[in-house]
């Protein structure tokens, strides 16, 4: 019997007694995050207080609420296994920080696409407004992940995201399909 393929994001549920455990897991019951006015987070775990921590999603595309690395001065101090294990208010604090940090403009439609002299120009619609992108080397800068998610990097280095290109309207899909 073939075993499940290790594709991006396809992980079985964590067993009760895993064979390997992650060192430095942060106990959600003891962790207390606080979002400061400056936009930075502070963290208290029991008696230990970190005035400025940064959170990093270890699986930013496929498990955005799981495995959150907690860093102080770019050094990892622990891993938060699941945001949902935190108390509700804490969850909102952490989510709010991560939403902001991991903001990627989501493309919901493509109004226009034309390639000129090796550059692809897209006029795309995002929830934040319409935006014009210029993409060079489409083979490298338009990446399909997991068969449906599309990540687009423009010439300025900005990243845009289509969560599932199959859900775009037919015209938008047709415009982008040639470059996937």
């Amino acid at each position: 019997m073939p075993r499940p393929r290790p594709e991006h994001g396809d992980f079985p549920e964590r067993p009760e007694k895993p064979e390997l455990t992650i060192l430095g897991e942060i106990d959600p019951a003891r962790a207390e995050f606080k979002l400061l006015d400056s936009g930075f987070l502070s963290l208290r775990v029991g008696d230990v207080f970190y005035p400025k921590v940064t959170l990093t999603r270890l699986f930013p595309y496929f498990h955005e609420n799981r495995y959150i690395s907690v860093l102080v001065d770019k050094e990892e101090v622990g891993i938060l296994d699941d945001i949902e294990a935190l108390p509700e208010q804490q969850q909102e604090t952490v989510q709010s920080y991560l939403r902001y940090k991991y903001y990627i403009p989501t493309i919901t439609a493509i109004r226009e696409a034309h390639d000129t002299l090796g550059y692809l120009y897209l006029t795309a619609v995002t929830p934040g407004g319409e935006v014009e992108l210029c993409i060079s080397d489409t083979a490298s800068n338009i990446r399909v992940m997991h068969g449906k998610t599309v990540n687009i990097r423009d010439v300025e280095g900005n990243l845009y995201h289509i969560p599932d290109y199959n859900t775009l309207d037919a015209a938008s899909r047709q415009r982008i399909e040639l470059f996937l």
């Binding site: 006015d37 400056s38 903001y103």
Partner: peptide, 24 residues
């Protein structure tokens, strides 16, 4: 940050606050 950056200002009279946000 991942795809954006922000300018954080601290003045003599106020604590750190975000001044502007831009694409990375």
């Amino acid at each position: 940050q991942m795809t954006t950056a922000r300018l954080v200002l601290t003045t003599r009279d106020s604590a750190a606050c975000q001044l502007a946000r831009m694409s990375l």
